[in-house]
Amino acid sequence: MSSPSETPPVVAHHPALRHHFDTMATQKDSSLLGMWVFIAQEIMFFGGMLAAYAIYRNVYYDAFAAGSHHLDVKLGTINTAVLICSSLTMALGVHAAALGKRKATVLFLLLTIALGSVFLGIKVVEYADKFHHDLVPGPRYSAESLHGAHGEALSADTARHSELFFALYFGLTGLHALHMIIGVPIIAIMAWKAGHGRFGPAYYTPVEVTGLYWHFVDIVWIFLFPLLYLIPHHA
């Protein structure tokens, strides 16, 4: 029998538990909360450019519709599907990590990287087309390849304002692509760690936090796709 004055027995704890946390549960909640706070910041970060987009689209509607119709709806739709698939594989990767399935975790994370790379590859094809048609804002910008709702040439004003559409197109999709370019190596590190048995049912927080980030990037695209690619000529 130990008397109350003796030092308490050392409780064996998980090696991933940092000394300033009482339990794995509070540590995990803190990490996830931190990611949600970051995501809240990210929403405001994208929000500024979205507000600029909303205003200019309403002021220069014809220019934005003409610019939007030059974008490839087929490629945009494929990319949306690719990104949703990558969100599914990410969710399944986190799921596998929670169940301690090492091989499945690595497989799903690698699939997520592959799908993310496909998305970025298609984006490169789309950007190259804009360069080819001189639709990149700057001194070489030319609206000659754009046309109105009935195939007519754009007025000088509309042609000039269409540059604003492409500035916001590159700004929004570029910022989104940058998030994916940052996300891919992070997922690769998670896959490497998972492959080396760093995670298990008691500790897979890094995988889950990475998943939150990746799903957020997916959500941004869910809004960007209809806003940029699907502006109707009518209305």
Binding site: D29, L32, L33, W36, V37, I39, A40, Q41, I43, M44, G47, G48, L50, A51, A54, S87, L88, M90, A91, E208, G211, L212, H215, F216, D218
Partner: peptide, 27 residues
Amino acid sequence: FFMHLKYSPRLYWIWLGAAVFFLAHLL
């Protein structure tokens, strides 16, 4: 579902709600 918010502490909901509120305010 993918981000598990349905099964998460209400504190996370508040942070997301605050961001959405201020985004709506901005727009």
